[in-house]
């Protein structure tokens, strides 16, 4: 029991919460970035531009089918070849954006496909250009259908951030490892706290996602 009290000291908890902050920060930055890029990729896939669309499709297929861990290594060790020196935080965000945007691209594409074709025709008939119609009419409607799936992706992002401890990202998992690495008695308390903290954040999000899903009345996509 004493080990639990010691393990959850003010200093250790503050260090864990700092780590949680990094986890959330990286996840939020990544989900925003990957939504923007994912939407672009998804639209390119949807409208079927010659050469570009198949190439994007292939890119999506390759990235989607690789382990995230590998993408993290590629960005962290590969970016300096392009003249950039990423910190582990930036490397993780970039890796996450590359990986998640391919996931979101597919979500965006099926979201657009779910919007009735008549919408586009109607918008075009009232004088909007194709891209205007896409941006102002189709995407907002598709967005509604996509929100639960995007929240699902956000949850897996938060969980997947833990993998970046391997390139020493100072996230929740890493900070817990630093703490229990310095004292055996803290191992069990730290694992419990890790589980609790991740669970609370992800569970709240999944409840939100379920609410939204009910309200918007669409089907949820599974994400692991």
């Amino acid at each position: 029991m004493q080990s639990f009290i010691d393990a959850y000291s003010w200093l250790n908890m503050r260090y864990l919460i700092e780590g949680l902050g990094v986890t959330v920060l990286v996840s939020v930055a990544s989900i925003i970035g990957s939504y923007v890029i994912g939407a672009i990729l998804g639209i390119i896939r949807y409208v079927n531009i010659r050469f570009l669309s198949p190439l994007v499709g292939l890119f999506i297929d390759i990235i989607r089918n690789l382990p995230l861990l590998l993408i993290i290594f590629f960005t962290y060790f590969g970016l300096p070849n392009l003249g950039l020196r990423p910190s582990s935080i930036w490397a993780t965000i970039i890796a996450m954006v590359i990986f998640e945007s391919t996931m979101l691209a597919e979500i965006v594409r099926s979201g657009i496909q779910a919007v009735p074709k008549g919408q586009m025709e109607g918008a075009r008939a009232s004088g909007l250009s194709y891209w205007q119609a896409m941006w102002h009419i189709i995407l907002p409607q598709a967005m509604k259908k996509m929100i639960p799936a995007i929240v699902s992706q956000f949850i897996s992002l938060i969980k997947d951030t833990s993998l970046a401890t391997i390139i020493v990202l100072p996230d929740l998992m890493h900070n817990a490892q630093i703490i229990y690495g310095q004292n055996t008695n803290y191992i069990l308390p730290m694992f419990l706290m890790l589980a609790i903290m991740y669970f609370i954040v992800c569970y709240i999000l999944s409840v939100i996602s379920r609410r939204l899903e009910k309200r918007l009345g669409s089907t949820r996509k599974q994400a692991a």
Partner: peptide, 15 residues
């Protein structure tokens, strides 16, 4: 569903 795979795996390896 709401705990990272790494935490679950490390739990079995370490704890």
């Amino acid at each position: 569903r709401n705990i990272p795979l790494l935490v679950i795996t490390m739990f079995f390896y370490v704890v």
